[in-house]
């Protein structure tokens, strides 16, 4: 029981234990050497920490049979590399056409669509806007947003839990990009999968709401590390819920000191103008 507690209180000890456990198990010598090196040094630089994260992620492919494990790992790496390259190309394309672009991710029901509705309402007369909505099924979100006079494209991903750069590329290569000023992507609702795939937008915005509890940011560091703006939504409910918003803000800042944190209510419209300012879309 003691060691269990230790693990949960001390991030580094989890990692060290993890490394100890995995050295030699891995057939890929390259990774092995890295693991060993990192373990022996113990004190880890940022880069190495990232690398560890990466290795741990790859290890989750261990369900693969021994013979094909290296192949699975390589393939997974390659898929992500391809996604990143494509995302880079998409972003260059957006910039060439002076398009401001945003990828909006967040938990189911946090208010991504509601915020996009409010934003669309305010900017649709000024900026030609395209909203790409990713959902498992239905066109509910796209229909809601279309009410506010912006163009939408719905992607139904079936069972995939995040959009990737390829989806976005398929859509934009059919569009005359010079016609648009702003492009939003509403990613499939959840806080886990979207962190793996960047889409080539200028900025990523992560939306959580106070109804998800004040631990929601603490529990999902990855997305906040990869986001430029964090929105804490539904603050109209604060009195009822008594959620500790200060903790949420400081958690986000702790994971990513550069992140802009803003509290909003898509219901009352509170701070939506401020959000537009941060996004560079204010009048």
């Amino acid at each position: 029981m003691k060691s269990f507690k230790l693990f949960h209180n001390n991030k580094e000890s989890i990692e060290v234990h993890y490394l100890k456990f995995n050295i030699g198990k891995n057939k890929n010598n390259d990774i092995n050497t890295k693991l060993l090196k990192i373990w022996q040094k113990k004190k880890m630089s940022d880069k190495e920490e990232r690398e560890i994260g990466r290795i741990q992620e790859l290890e989750s492919t261990n369900l693969a049979r021994e013979e094909i494990r290296d192949l699975v790992i390589e393939t997974k790496k390659k898929v992500e590399r391809d996604n990143d390259l494509l995302a880079e190309r998409i972003n260059k394309n957006f910039q060439k056409h002076n398009i401001k672009s945003f990828d909006i991710v967040g938990a189911i029901g946090a208010g991504k669509t509601a915020i996009l509705e409010k934003i669309s309402e305010k900017i649709s007369s000024k900026y030609k806007t395209l909203v790409i909505c990713g959902d498992i099924t239905t066109r509910v979100d796209a229909d809601r947003i279309e009410e506010h006079n912006v163009e939408t494209v719905q992607i139904n991903t079936g069972r995939e839990c995040a959009l990737n750069a390829y989806h976005i590329n398929q859509i934009i290569k059919n569009k005359e990009l010079s016609e648009y000023d702003v492009i939003f992507v509403e990613n499939v609702g959840n806080l886990i999968c979207p962190s793996e795939f960047i889409l080539g937008t200028d900025k990523r915005i992560t939306v959580v709401s106070i109804t998800e509890g004040e631990w929601v940011i603490e529990k999902h560091p990855m997305l906040f590390k990869m986001s430029d703006i964090a929105i804490i939504n539904k603050i109209d409910l604060l009195e009822r819920l008594g959620t500790n918003i200060d903790k949420m803000i400081s958690d986000a800042k702790k994971f990513n000191p550069d992140i802009e944190v803003i509290t909003t209510s898509a219901k009352t419209g509170e701070n939506i103008n401020k959000l537009l300012e941060i996004m560079g879309l204010a009048e």
Binding site: R139, Q154, N156, T157, G158, R159, E160, H167, Q170, I171
Partner: peptide, 22 residues
């Protein structure tokens, strides 16, 4: 399994579609 659709898509009657399509 795993179909992905990016609208607009028209599917006629009596269409059979395999796994992992885009």
């Amino acid at each position: 399994d795993f179909p992905t659709f990016i609208e607009p898509v028209h599917l006629g009657n009596n269409v059979r579609i395999g796994d992992d399509v885009l």
